[in-house]
């Protein structure tokens, strides 16, 4: 295989506005961004609760969440497949091989990342931040919001890490999405398919986009952190 020619072909595909290629990219971003929109608010709230509250079973939940960080995405996909398949509990919803199923899968993959990183960020907060807010008359909701703002770089790291994990996962998307062209084919599943067919140019082009997304997310975090990052 001529790597140089293949790479040149990949960039030509990318910058010529190849409709199929850009559809794959848009599906990927749409599914992952929607999954993040759904997962982020409850995960941050739950992470804050686990970091600050004391209740029976809290430790078990924290350890389980941390354990789920390493859960293989293909296993999440398998479980979801069984639940959504015709014989599954949610089979009547007819969600299998739809973008909705991929979104559900990515939400499940993102949740432990968001919760675990939020716990870590909030536990690392200066306790005087919440105490000061409370002492100045802030309500519980406002003092919570203030504390989260004080540790926003940690929370942003949670969001970017979760996005990085779901936008590049292949196992779950393949299992519950089915890799249907124009419907559920996203960047990782398309790379797997094109490579298996020997179509390396499209695989490289999509890989390049995925790499750009991952790098962009990291640069965004570093810039947002200011002195702690790029400055």
């Amino acid at each position: 295989m001529d790597w140089l020619a293949t790479t040149r072909e990949a960039f030509a595909l990318l910058f010529s506005g190849d409709a199929d290629l850009w559809q794959v990219i848009l599906i990927s971003l749409r599914v992952s961004l929607l999954a993040m929109l759904i997962a982020t608010p409850p995960a941050i709230a739950f992470g804050y609760l686990l970091a600050t509250a004391s209740f029976p079973g809290r430790r078990l939940i924290v350890v389980t969440t941390q354990g789920l960080l390493a859960s293989p995405t293909v296993v999440v996909g398998l479980i979801l497949y069984l639940l959504l398949s015709r014989q599954g509990i949610f089979g009547s919803l007819k969600l299998l091989f739809t973008q909705e199923a991929m979104i559900i899968g990515q939400v499940l993959i993102a949740l432990p990342v968001l919760v675990a990183f939020t716990i870590s960020a909030v536990q690392g907060a200066d306790p005087r931040a919440r105490e000061t807010a409370v002492s100045l008359g802030a309500s519980r909701m406002r003092s919570t919001w203030t504390t989260l703002l004080e540790v926003r770089f940690g929370v942003m790291a949670a969001v970017f890490n979760a996005f990085g994990r779901i936008v590049s996962e292949v196992g779950c998307s393949l299992m519950v999405g089915g890799n249907i062209a124009g419907v559920t084919r996203n960047i990782p599943t398309a790379i797997a398919l094109e490579t298996s067919k020997g179509e390396f140019a499209q695989g490289i082009a999509l890989g390049f986009v995925l790499l750009l997304v991952a790098l962009g997310v990291n640069f965004a975090l570093a810039f947002a952190q200011g002195e702690g990052g790029m400055k």
């Binding site: 200066d126 005087r128 931040a129 105490e131 807010a133 002492s135 008359g137």
Partner: peptide
């Protein structure tokens, strides 16, 4: 009743924002 720490904590943002924090909370 207001409590002030030995080493006061100032929120991120401006000094003005810090001073008006409690008023905004009200």
């Amino acid at each position: 009743l207001i409590y002030v720490h030995q080493h006061p904590y100032l929120f991120r943002g401006s000094i003005f924002d810090n001073i008006c924090y409690g008023l905004r909370a009200r």
